[in-house]
Design a protein around this nucleic acid. Sequence first.
RNA 1: GCCCCUGUGGCGGAACUGGUAGACGCGACCGACUCAAAAUCGGUUUCCGCAAGGAGUGCUGGUUCGAUUCCGGCCAGGGGCACCA
Length: 868
Amino acid sequence: MRASRYNFREAEPRWQKIWDEKQVFKTRTDDPRPKYYVLEMFPYPSGRIHMGHVRNYAMGDVVARYRRAKGYAVLHPMGWDAFGMPAENAAMEKKVHPATWTYQNIATMKAQLKSMGLSLDWSREFATCDPDYYKHQQRMFLDFLKAGLVARKTSKVNWDPVDHTVLANEQVIDGRGWRSGALVEQRELTQWFLRISDFSEELLNALDGLTRWPEKVRLMQANWIGRSEGLTIRWALVPESAPAGFDTLEIYTTRPDTLGGASFMAIAADHPLAKTAGAQDPALQAFIEECRRMGTSQATLETAEKRGYDTGIRARHPFDPTWELPVYVANFILMDYGTGAIFGCPAHDQRDHDFATRYALPIKPVVRPAEMSDAEANAAFSREAPPYLDDGVVFNSGFLDGLTIAAAKEAVAARLEAETIAGAPVAARKVNFRLRDWGISRQRYWGCPIPIIHCEDCGIVPVPNQALPVTLPDDVDFDKPGNPLDRHPTWRHVPCPQCGKPARRETDTMDTFVDSSWYFARFTDPFNADSPTSPAAIAKWLPVDQYIGGIEHAILHLLYSRFFTRAMSLTGHADIKEPFEGLFTQGMVVHETYRNADGAWVSPAEIRIETGEHGRRAVEIESGREAIIGSIEKMSKSKKNVVDPDDIIASYGADTARWFMLSDSPPERDVIWSEEGVQGAGRFVQKIWRLVTEAADLPREGSTDTVPAVTRAAHKAVLSVSEDLERLRFNRCIAHIHDLSNTIAAALAERSDETGPAIREAVRVMVQLFAPMMPHLAEECWAELNEDGLVADAAWPVADPALVREDRLLLPVQINGRKRGDIEVPAEADAAAVEAMARADAAIGALLEGKPIRKVIVVPKRIVNIVL
RNA sequence: GCCCCUGUGGCGGAACUGGUAGACGCGACCGACUCAAAAUCGGUUUCCGCAAGGAGUGCUGGUUCGAUUCCGGCCAGGGGCACCA
């Protein structure tokens, strides 16, 4: 018997060094084997890696190592999403330059990732804040500009009137700036946009082709793009009620069938009609100002109480010019969507209903369930009843009565298209999208500069190619809020590239989503200094075969990347449409929360868990007082329920941490980090080591007449582990490996001269099966078993179908759907034979005694159900 | 508010396309080894019941020979909502 415990502290760094020296994970573009590109969403260098990273990168690494073993040329790179607000916050709070802070964090986190033993090609590493990266981004921006993919228009931002700075949504707390506490205002700024909305239809339709994406992500994106078919309708305004120049009001609706139930009109606070009317009505102006103080986030707008102001303007109903409706300015109408104006039908829309209730406006039902009569529907109606939103039949609506919703929509469209008002058709059919253009301007320092120069004479002038990159100045101060680029004494002053006159640089930088919209393409050839991408590398590696990241990126990052890839194709930087062929969204890492007797949050490291007859209790180690075990939540600094990967790797090793991360929960779901769970994983590592050291003494060669059970178990495990790895069901892989290890342990306990070689072989297979998850332990075991080379270079085992097949099956027998017994049948028995065997079974026969059998259902290889 | 997801023993979860609910692990309990402990090994562990048996996959109703799986309603928890990344 050898040294009985596996020493990960010594082994893990040793194997990492060997992989490194032999450049095992370095990828060559001229590798002739079929390619496989596996990518995990690159991290923001926030300071230290967290358990979410460990989970994400452990998963990606399993896929990468598995594909390598299956004979693919694998590309598995890593980099840093390095621009962003936290660096500027750190600069303000800690007086450290954003670049210094960022690169220090990268160094720390890179060391942490290395200690995990990931099979990454580090030679391709870059950070998006490297000028060598963002210079290509600036060039592509200019190419997009030339190709008509960029627009300049106004949009609203959160403005802090005290700090004189633009705030991100997360910096607005309860309508106030997070530092100044001042009430936030909406402000209009002229900004740069990428014209993603030109691709709405294309991005929506192409979702159908993304068959290896989670259905829910495709659904979320489809809803986000939000295609709707509707009608724009122009309503005549009662002339004496409306300001001069406003004869009509154009609205957009997807429910023209409910026109008969119209109760009011509502327009956005920044609708031209509202602005004009507000100029003449101080109370209205005050209401508009109030709407403007609500912040710009959708959630804020829609959860706010529905409020409005009656402008006194009246609109004439398109069906009946004597029917006049009030025009309100309402806080829940968005100028960005449709025409910024709607008609309200409270009986069939929740928001309209809320609004009508608050302002005592008419509510008239015009759609009823098909099975009701008009009279019944009218009798059943009340103002207090919730709006009816389902399909049905139109009533109370004159010429539309009796039509289905679809037919009524068509009838309204046909009628109003044919009528005219002020020399144009009253209505027009319109396909509308919710998706808006992508505003990329940020009034911040730590981002990629937008390579534009504003000249009074020449207007907007692109920075010439040879002058790229436009780099950020180093000498900036963060003593004051706002964009340091604006305040910089010299940086913004440049001669116009066209006329040479003094001009000024664009001081906005790009949204960091731009940085992450093409990094996967850059990884295919990060060595190209002249262009963003190289055609050969793009052709070889893209699309990404398996992309893995958090579900929180389901919409924005992924949609922007899909758009950006198309834009790159149009400008000759890529030759594909979809960047990510396979997508997997993993769940979060969550942990129990603890509070001490004073109600303060306490971290798990300061807690000892005791289990006794009263269940689990937590004790604060320092004070010895009992702590309260709170709910399980996403790990966050504020609730102190964080576990530091460094601590875990130091006390248990990288393999144990990786194994536990993958073991319990399905990867798409949240995983609860628990001390007991990690300890269990640690015990398993030692168990494997014991099995391997014992098996290493067994002979390799031998002969037997029969196939030992352990051999069958190993082959079955190869089959099931491979299948589950293909589908990223890591928790099931681990269960299968546990099973195999149990079978091997039993076989070892009863080993004979005959079974020795079979056990040794099964152990070798088991080592290969867990190698993608616990690579260091696997190498150590591989060497202990005296196998050739590295397990990282070994080919994946292949299952022998003959050894996996079962010739007899245990079949459950039900009576009336309840299991009453089992019968053992030959695997190939036909239905009649199985039925006969079920009836012949003693236990079943007794229960059937004297009762008539109505029906017998035999599902081959599954079940027998006898119905009495 | 809108969109999307999730809900199974004491706990994490398994159950392929509607076919034995609880694989595998954690915890707990009992036993072996030990002077003792740790480690390790063996056994038990959904609930009620001595048993026969019955109940059971958030709640509720439906479809089916058969529902964790499909459909309707409800409840609870989570993700996203365009300047957090």
